[in-house]
Nucleic acid binder design. Structure first.
Length: 123
DNA sequence: AGTTTGACTGGAG
DNA sequence: CCTCCAGCCAAAC
């Protein structure tokens, strides 16, 4: 993931640390939320942002997930865009999802009405 | 300090 | 189906 901890260390003691702290917290929320998405379901950048308390920060979620990388414990591949499309430049994502039982037709889109994770009804 | 850049979104052609 | 666009907002130039 982004080394926000390092940034925090560098920035501690300055007037910047408040802002960086918020982003650190947002990052933690994102990790927590994405980790909660069960296998066989997907969520969207916008949903994650909203659950983290910042509905207008979908793009920031994308950036954070990209920095986390697919080699982490966090199942970033279960996050697709609101149209059900996997990330364009991440070829393995569709296969990872299919492996979990998420169907992706020749349209290249996930059927969101079927596979979208509903945290409220699920837990 | 101003501009560009996205793993975004929803709507309009 | 596609592309384009405005709105979005932190980060990176």
């Amino acid at each position: 993931m982004i080394n926000f901890n390092l940034i925090l260390l560098i920035v501690v003691g300055t007037d910047m640390h408040k802002i960086k702290l918020d982003i650190l917290q947002f990052t933690r929320s994102v990790q927590e939320i994405v980790s909660a998405v069960p296998s066989g379901k997907v969520t969207t950048y916008g949903d994650v942002a909203a659950l983290a308390g910042f509905p207008s920060h979908a793009r920031l979620v994308g950036k954070i997930l990209g920095c986390i990388g697919m080699d982490s414990d966090i199942p970033c591949h279960r996050v697709v865009n609101a149209q059900g499309r996997p990330a364009p430049h991440w070829l393995n994502q569709a296969d990872l999802l299919r492996r979990e039982g998420v169907a992706i037709g020749n349209s290249g889109r996930v059927d969101m009405s079927k596979y979208r994770w509903q945290p409220l009804s699920a837990e």
